[in-house]
Computed example of a mutant assay.
Amino acid sequence: MTLKSPHTRWDGDDVHGRRVVLTSVGVRLDRLFARVAGTPRHVIETGLDMTGEVHGRLHGRFPSIDGDWYGVVNYEIGYADGRPQKVYLVDQLVPFHVLRLLSETKPH
């Protein structure tokens, strides 16, 4: 199931079925989960790695009353110890300033 926004883009038609258009984005975790300046670090080796950028799929958009835009995104966050399991986050509302459009590679 996909969270539907007034600005969700759809592909297909009523006869053959409709599906949400997913847009590849980078989610900048450092910006989304910014640490308060001066806060001391306490490293937990088995904790979530909230640094860098992870791949996400944008599938909805909402404006705020102030004119800021928020995207509805699915993405994964890995663990600092490198284990293969990840935390999968679905339908997360994130500000557009933490998203970066990723170019899709199309087959020739």
Score class of each variant (00 low, 15 high):
Met1Ile: 03
Thr2His: 13
Leu3Lys: 04
Leu3Arg: 04
Lys4His: 06
Lys4Leu: 09
Ser5Lys: 14
His7Leu: 14
His7Cys: 09
Arg9Met: 14
Arg9Asp: 08
Trp10Thr: 02
Gly12Arg: 07
Asp13Phe: 03
Asp13Lys: 02
Asp14His: 09
His16Glu: 13
His16Gln: 06
His16Asn: 12
Arg18Met: 08
Val21Gly: 11
Leu22Ser: 00
Thr23Ala: 12
Ser24Phe: 10
Ser24His: 06
Val25Tyr: 06
Gly26Gln: 10
Val27Gly: 00
Val27Phe: 05
Arg28Val: 15
Leu29Thr: 03
Asp30Lys: 09
Arg31Ala: 08
Leu32Ile: 04
Phe33Lys: 09
Phe33Pro: 03
Phe33Glu: 02
Arg35Asn: 13
Ala37Asp: 15
Ala37Thr: 07
Gly38Lys: 00
Gly38Met: 09
Thr39Trp: 11
Thr39Met: 09
Pro40Cys: 04
His42Tyr: 11
His42Gln: 04
Ile44Gln: 00
Ile44Met: 08
Glu45Arg: 08
Glu45Thr: 09
Leu48Val: 03
Asp49Val: 03
Asp49Leu: 11
Met50Trp: 15
Thr51Ile: 06
Thr51Leu: 10
Gly52Pro: 12
Glu53Ile: 05
Glu53Met: 03
Glu53Leu: 04
Val54Lys: 10
Val54Ile: 02
His55Thr: 05
His55Lys: 14
His55Gly: 10
Gly56Tyr: 01
His59Pro: 07
Gly60Lys: 06
Gly60Trp: 08
Arg61Thr: 09
Phe62Asn: 02
Phe62Thr: 01
Phe62Pro: 02
Pro63Met: 01
Pro63Asp: 15
Ser64Ala: 10
Ser64Lys: 05
Ile65Gly: 11
Ile65Val: 06
Asp66His: 04
Asp66Glu: 14
Asp68Met: 02
Asp68Ala: 14
Tyr70Asn: 14
Tyr70Lys: 01
Gly71Trp: 05
Gly71Tyr: 06
Gly71His: 08
Gly71Arg: 01
Val73Thr: 05
Asn74His: 15
Asn74Pro: 00
Asn74Gln: 12
Tyr75Leu: 06
Tyr75Pro: 05
Tyr79Thr: 07
Tyr79Asp: 07
Tyr79Asn: 05
Ala80Asn: 05
Ala80Thr: 15
Asp81Leu: 15
Asp81Pro: 00
Asp81Cys: 07
Asp81Asn: 13
Gly82Ser: 00
Gln85Ile: 01
Lys86Ile: 01
Lys86Pro: 05
Lys86Phe: 08
Val87Leu: 15
Tyr88Thr: 13
Tyr88His: 12
Val90Glu: 13
Gln92Leu: 02
Phe96Asn: 13
His97Pro: 04
His97Trp: 14
Val98Ile: 04
Val98Lys: 04
Val98Tyr: 02
Leu99Cys: 02
Arg100Phe: 06
Arg100Ser: 05
Leu101His: 13
Leu102Ala: 04
Leu102Val: 02
Leu102Cys: 10
Glu104Ser: 13
Lys106Asp: 00
His108Met: 14
His108Arg: 11
His108Thr: 10
